[in-house]
Design a binder for these strands. Structure first.
Lengths: 135, 135
DNA sequence: TCAAATAAGACTTTATTAGTCGGGTATAAA
DNA sequence: TTTATACCCGACTAATAAAGTCTTATTTGA
């Protein structure tokens, strides 16, 4: 269905929000959730995943929160989406080390090559849009 | 997750299969299902949807089956995918006539415009690949 | 020490996708 | 005119994935 998950949407919103508040030392998950009326737990979870991939960095404890891990022009949309959606591939068979076990038609599949090309094009598309462009 | 549905995969496989058998007057759903070991009912359903959108045309009755509705260079991947997956948009809010009811953050959404641009780029990508290119 | 914040994972609910089934219609050929 | 083969269509079920909730632990500034 080529549909973006809520996680990805929330991640994009969160990163954009943080990017727009760069004057502050950091921004809390609660603030983002409140501002956009999103479930706090999910926003929180998404930010934790973004932290693991260094898209944002976290400051723990009271007065803690999140700030960007790099400059806005160094964060591409693929960084954000793949952080929260590690298996964002359009089909199972194009994941790292995929094989017959991921697909009943691995051997006879006639559409894998074209799909891999499409996957690469979509990835490039998302790679070429940075946070700078969306703020 | 930007993942393609099985329906779309089967549709692509079916169309490619038919395109490769153009010497035959038509190809049955059963033949396609057997050849790729796909569930017949699903292949059948997918072909019916492709028929509605004139991607293929159906010949009813005994000795019936399917053949392409247009030339291979006139069928793009977006034709095939949108036939079986009418709501293939990356988010709900970019469907024809979408409004506040489709999204809790329609009014305050800060990422809609960039996402619409991405949607358009993906659509163009799929529009520019025809069946000719994948056979 | 306390309050506010992140971290992490288990769990539940809901939505979507995938697959199945049954009955209907069309048509070539015996 | 009967039969076999094939498309047509919608309802249903099962499986999977996404979305959301809850609980507990850890960090740290005041």
């Amino acid at each position: 269905m080529l549909k973006l998950s809520k996680k990805s949407e929330y991640a994009l919103m969160a990163v954009k929000y943080i990017a727009l508040q760069q004057d502050k030392t950091c921004v809390t998950a609660r603030e983002i959730a409140k501002n956009y009326n999103l479930p706090y737990e999910l926003v929180s979870k998404v930010l934790q995943q973004l932290t693991r991939y260094n898209v944002v960095l976290s400051i723990q404890g009271a007065k803690g929160g999140y700030r960007l891990g790099k400059g806005t022009s160094d964060i591409s949309l693929i960084d954000i989406i793949s952080a929260v959606e590690p298996r964002h591939q359009i089909t199972n068979c194009m994941m790292e080390g995929s094989s017959v076990k991921d697909c009943d038609h691995y051997d006879c599949c006639m559409i894998r090559d074209p799909l891999i090309k499409i996957q690469n094009k979509i990835d490039n598309l998302l790679k070429n849009i940075t946070v700078t462009e969306i703020i």
